[in-house]
């Protein structure tokens, strides 16, 4: 029985690591900010979920199990809220998604340059 649990948790941990790596590679590889959010959300949902479920199999019926469930629930809730907040803040600051950007002819470096300066100049 212990060996069975070990094998199951092995599978979960390895596939979780694989999805985390996939998300990190997507973070480096995707062309613009809005598509990078999607890559980051892979590691946030399935990567974190699989690794934590794999650890739950190792924990067994101890007090560690509910703590892991708490971390999982919190990371799912906080992850979505944080990605929505980031996307909304980026849109409000004038950063355009890749498709819309073609129409405006505005480069992302250009639009963020103004934001950076605005942030600096507003410092007291």
């Amino acid at each position: 029985m212990d060996i069975l649990f070990d094998i199951i948790s092995w599978i979960f941990l390895v596939s979780g690591s694989f999805f985390c790596l996939t998300g990190a590679i997507g973070l480096l590889r995707f062309p613009d900010f809005f598509s990078r959010i999607h890559a980051a959300s892979i590691t946030d949902t399935l990567g974190a979920g699989l690794i934590l479920v794999g650890l739950m199999f190792q924990a067994g019926w101890t007090l560690t199990l509910p703590k892991l469930i708490l971390i999982l629930l919190f990371s799912l809730l906080a992850g979505t809220t944080a990605s929505h907040a980031m996307a909304k803040a980026a849109l409000k600051s004038g950063l355009q998604p890749l498709e819309v950007q073609k129409d405006n002819g505005k480069a992302p470096e250009e639009s963020i340059g103004t934001t950076d300066e605005g942030a600096l100049s507003s410092k007291p």
Binding site: H38, L46, T80, L91
Partner: peptide, 25 residues
């Protein structure tokens, strides 16, 4: 809106009244 964001491939980026602006991969 949160379910849309939780699903990878779609992120809700803005919300006014009952229209949700979604960025899809």
């Amino acid at each position: 809106a949160n379910s849309i964001t939780l699903t990878p491939g779609t992120v809700s980026i803005d919300l006014n009244e009952n229209h949700i602006v979604v960025h899809a991969l």
